[in-house]
Design a protein around this nucleic acid. Sequence first.
DNA 1: CATGAATGAGCATTCATTCAT
DNA 2: GATGAATGAATGCTCATTCAT
Lengths: 204, 204, 204, 204
Amino acid sequence: MRTLDPVKHAEKRGEILLAAWRCLAKTGFRGTSTADICKEAGISPGHLYHYFDSKEAIVTALTARGLEGAEAGFTEMMKSSNALAAMISELDRHKTRHKTDKHGDYRTISLVVLEMLVEAGRNPAIAKIIRANTRKIKSLLVEFLKTGQERGQIDPKLDADVAATLLLSVMDGMKTIGIREPKSDPARNIEYLQILISRFLSPP
Amino acid sequence: MRTLDPVKHAEKRGEILLAAWRCLAKTGFRGTSTADICKEAGISPGHLYHYFDSKEAIVTALTARGLEGAEAGFTEMMKSSNALAAMISELDRHKTRHKTDKHGDYRTISLVVLEMLVEAGRNPAIAKIIRANTRKIKSLLVEFLKTGQERGQIDPKLDADVAATLLLSVMDGMKTIGIREPKSDPARNIEYLQILISRFLSPP
Amino acid sequence: MRTLDPVKHAEKRGEILLAAWRCLAKTGFRGTSTADICKEAGISPGHLYHYFDSKEAIVTALTARGLEGAEAGFTEMMKSSNALAAMISELDRHKTRHKTDKHGDYRTISLVVLEMLVEAGRNPAIAKIIRANTRKIKSLLVEFLKTGQERGQIDPKLDADVAATLLLSVMDGMKTIGIREPKSDPARNIEYLQILISRFLSPP
Amino acid sequence: MRTLDPVKHAEKRGEILLAAWRCLAKTGFRGTSTADICKEAGISPGHLYHYFDSKEAIVTALTARGLEGAEAGFTEMMKSSNALAAMISELDRHKTRHKTDKHGDYRTISLVVLEMLVEAGRNPAIAKIIRANTRKIKSLLVEFLKTGQERGQIDPKLDADVAATLLLSVMDGMKTIGIREPKSDPARNIEYLQILISRFLSPP
DNA sequence: CATGAATGAGCATTCATTCAT
DNA sequence: GATGAATGAATGCTCATTCAT
């Protein structure tokens, strides 16, 4: 995998990963073949293996990259002085982020993330990445909750660690709404999610 | 002495579905071939098609059957006089249901249900079943919430429909914990889930 | 294959053959499965083998039965005193026989007969039947031609045997018109066929 | 040094088609599997699909290619100044062409062409090709007949279009002789075919 | 006679991966 | 770096046939 120009190599890897993401969003893990990815990336099937050892390596890299974004949001939240308000307003961004961005609309992204989670249930390599990422996000969340508790904004009786686990799982759960009830209003659901989180965390 | 016995036919179908479920639990939707199901069911590859029209018909039947169970629990809840308490105690059953039953342990079942949801994201036939089931469960839940509101046990300001959607999604979300944090204590998580639901629904 | 009532046995065989013919007409040799025949005949797959040893036995019996009809027409012709006129008027019947009868319309029958001929090209059992039938028809035709020659109605210089072979092949050839030119007018084609035969056989 | 070489690709396609033709000649449309073709062509089962989209695409290409040859003969005829004589002498070539050439002996070719016609009776894609080819050949034949009529070599009362249809069908009919009467003398039959055509077309 | 459960070889096709150029 | 030819195991599915009842 040595290359004369490691920068170009990494760039090309990035392009292929982006192409792979587009395929995954369109046809899912199951429905995406290496041939599809090659066509989308505009390279030959043999050439794919110059950049990745296997299809799994692509999925692995994609998962890793996909989760990096999630971290950023949480890191941002940390800086706020009012923990609860910050978390709530962070969710507001989701209300408007239903339009397409580079990675597709919110529902598509949700589906792919769910697919990644399911994949992790069978595939140890993916599971490892998911867990490492979960640990990072959770530690940010725990710290965030503890700060809120110190400031009297969050119920001090809650175990920050368990509460963080639950909050994360609640966020995951939101991703199934688009599947179960495709016609329900996302803005309304997020509004209620804000209420739910607020009531759960608020001191009595 | 005409047999024709539709009972035996249905029984065999059931056996095959159970075998298919075992395969799914072991290797997932993606990883299960018709050959695997046949081997597990102890029948020949051709014979499978005596009972099901296609692999998708098996998956469809399996999904339908798998979701029937979920309904029962909700129907039971309805009978209680204290809505919130009923929902909470229903969750208590989950704390102990982590041991193996006919369908495998709780985590395996969760994973398979998640796979069904993901499958529904790409496969309209499965989506239809999921949505029909969601509608049923949700209407039970809505009725349940409204009864609670009438009795003053649940916050009357909450829109029962949106709250039901959210509660369902929270339940789905719980299924990812086993993937993200396999070592976290299920009993503790459910305890906090009870707090979360209780605080969300209680009147102020 | 012994049966208590050989008459009923033969009757049932006939019914099955008729059902098989209907399948063949609809979906062709290639496209007809034993299951199709059983469904059409209203019997179970196992029962088929009570009446026929194999699928090939059905095809064989069907071919034999199908060709019996062709003989009748030629036998009728023989009785006429004017050979050429008889042959020509026999063809007139074809002009009107394009409507459906028990065996389907003319084009469908033609296609099935062509399929039988093609089948004979690979399948010795069918070939044997076809050849036996050809011999019978041809001997009728040869006799017919010779009678015509004696009566001065047919060119005496023609070798009756070779001429008969050619006439038979010309009749076979007519069966491809429906495939090559489905929109051409059958009545017009038969009219020209009459001219062709008349000119070929007439004394100079 | 980009290859991409479409020439080699086309060559390989040709090789596979030739192998497919050999299989068809040996075991017929019905009896030829993609595995047979691959074995005959010396390639792996997967590789076949690098050159053809499906088995039907092979059959289609084969049919198209197989019929191209027929055109050439007719085109040649057109150049002659004596229409009838040209057609007759063209048939003479068939007398000697009974030995094997690249595509097998005359009888095998006839059988495969008959199979193509039968296939066309059920398979619209093949039918389309057959009909396009029929139109081409027929228009050549019609022009040929009209030229002959202008020169007084062919009966001017004959409708060139209907006569062409009939002549084509007569040619098709010749292909069944090898099946019905494998022992009959091809040279003798063609001799009589020449008489038949000559008498049919000659002016009174 | 009659059923339909059961078989297993065979089919067209897909796809991750390798390799010569 | 880059191509696309080539592989071969695997997949979902069909079908003529057998057999216990």
